[in-house]
Write a protein that binds this DNA or RNA. Structure first.
Length: 475
RNA sequence: GGCGGCGUAGCCAAGUGGCUAAGGCGCGGGCCUGCAAAGCCCUGAUCCCCGGUUCGAAUCCGGGCGCCGCCUCCA
């Protein structure tokens, strides 16, 4: 049994996992901005905390997981005052910001359920916590960290010596405005808005009164305010995509640690790497597979994405290709078949025989969640000739508590997709059946070829011939 | 300009100083099946290039080449 170790972005190393409160883990995850459907990269960022949670639960920890819903803000660019992702989406759809948020929040939750994520204990919305955010802003103001300029109230990062620590920034070397316009009046390039003033000429759908005037909170404020509200001023794990580490999380740390005078506010910063889309920008016009529903439309089980996720280490960029997803779907299906067949085995297993495999699986995950290594153990069990079936069954059950691949699911409930019917095709099939009865294989094969040309696949079963459409591979 | 990551068999991907370089998918071969599907078995790499350290390197160091990400309220 190895000690559990996780890589922590702040200390830039893998170190033994410890908790602030014995047996309990507080974990915060930066959740979705709900103005559009989530893409597969977002889902990867959702699967990381789910893996952490399942693993730690299997280790006996009680995990309180909080994922926020960002349903306000997000300026598209400084140049476009008032152009805000929520607002733009709402305007386009002719809906209110709340309706847009509701729609995409639900879509996100459906996606999470489709990849079998355990629901978080708390799933707070930013707009439901405006008072908490204002309260934190006031604390920062009282402690002298804020200053006001034309478009809002800003945090002076030069007053927080540890500002560059999390992201390992070289503030001197940063090129302000390298990718975005400079905001007039900021004291330091890294300063960020805690509260933005509403543009008097542009009525926003979402704005609130505050001690600093009417406006809306800076994006970073919500995560500080809500993590403290639900997990306390200090908690154990904070997860998100790696892109958020540099700016968002540096700012979050600044707010929480300055506002509440604590350090460190987060024990383990765990960031997942991006999917490598091969330099190809995801776009609907290109028909690139990029959302979970796109996968479903192509006939893939959404859990194939979960399997795909488990095949690579979370801190490595993972190449996202059609081929890889197809391979994952196939691997998943085979594993599920094995798991389901083993569920029919009766009897008790032998814990002694299971122990070594269990330990290797567990130790792989204890080593900064090395899921690919754990999966190798899973396959070893799935295909083992040495283990008794009861032991293979028990082991896969145990593993699947963490994998979440529904390996032992009731075969009858899931089973094969329903066999299809169609007068024309059924007619050809009947003709083929007659040919087969008289062993006229030439005719039977000719009909098979005809149907194959129509993208129809014939499967002979003990109950007779069945058919189904071959999943499309276009795009 | 600053910061970070990667380059291992056709594809995805573990391994980061020393057993025969995990695992999945595909390809090929075989078994089974009239054929096919499913299933089962077998099968493949000396680790981007060059130089160095070492008894010994995919694994450490230096130099190339190539790819990707962050520095934007992008996962």
């Amino acid at each position: 049994m190895k000690e559990i170790e996780f890589y922590d972005t702040r200390s830039r190393k893998q170190r033994p996992f410890t908790t602030l409160k014995p047996g309990h883990v507080g974990m915060y995850t930066c959740g979705p901005t709900v103005y559009a459907p989530q893409h597969v990269g977002n889902i990867r960022s959702r699967l990381l905390p789910d893996l952490i949670k399942r693993f730690l639960q299997s280790e006996g920890y009680e995990v309180t997981h909080v994922i926020n819903i960002t349903d306000v803000g997000h300026l598209v660019a400084d140049a476009d005052v008032g152009d805000d992702k929520m607002e733009v989406a709402a305007r386009k759809a002719g809906l209110s910001a709340e309706e847009i948020a509701e729609k995409y929040t639900q879509m996100w939750r459906d996606d999470c359920a489709a990849v079998n994520c355990i629901s978080p204990e708390e799933n707070p919305k930013a707009t439901d916590h405006i008072p908490e955010q204002i309260e934190l802003g006031k604390r920062l103001e009282e402690r002298g960290y804020l200053y006001t300029i034309a478009d809002g109230v800003y945090f002076d990062t030069s007053l927080f010596p540890r500002y560059a620590e999390l992201a390992g920034l070289d503030l001197e070397g940063q090129q302000e405005g390298a990718r975005i316009g400079v905001t007039e009046g900021k004291k330091n390039p890294s300063d960020f808005a805690v509260w933005k003033f509403a543009d008097p000429d542009m009525k926003r759908l979402q704005e609130w009164d505050s001690p600093w005037g009417r406006g809306f909170p800076g994006w970073h404020l919500e995560c500080s305010a809500m993590s403290v509200r639900y997990l306390g001023e200090r908690f154990d794990i904070h997860t998100a995509g790696i892109d958020l580490a540099t700016v968002h999380h540096s700012n979050e740390v600044a707010q929480t640690e300055c506002g509440f005078e604590v350090h460190p506010s987060v024990e383990f910063w765990m960031h997942n790497e991006f999917l490598d889309m091969g330099g190809e920008k995801m776009s609907k016009s290109k028909g690139n597979v990029k959302t979970l529903s796109n996968l479903s439309e192509r006939g893939f089980d959404p859990l194939a994405f979960r399997y795909f996720f488990l095949q690579a280490h979370y801190r490595q960029q993972q190449a996202y290709t059609y081929e890889a997803i197809e391979a994952a779907a196939r691997g998943l299906r085979r594993l599920q078949k094995i798991g389901r067949a083993l569920e029919l085995v009766e009897g008790d297993g032998n814990p002694g025989a299971q122990a070594p495999l269990k330990e290797r699986f567990r130790d792989a995950l204890a080593d900064d969640l090395n899921a690919p290594r754990a999966m190798a153990v899973v396959w070893e069990v799935a295909r083992s000739d040495d283990l008794a079936d009861v032991d293979r069954r028990d082991l896969l059950r145990c593993f699947d508590l963490i994998l979440g691949l529904r390996l032992g699911e009731d075969a009858a409930a899931e089973s094969e997709p329903a066999w299809e019917q169609d007068p024309e095709i059924d007619g050809l099939l009947a003709e083929r059946e007659r040919a087969r009865e008289v062993k006229d294989w030439a005719t039977a094969d000719r009909i098979r070829d005809e149907l194959t040309a129509l993208e129809v696949e014939i499967i002979d079963t003990p109950e007779g011939a069945r058919w189904r459409r071959i999943a499309g591979h276009s795009g």
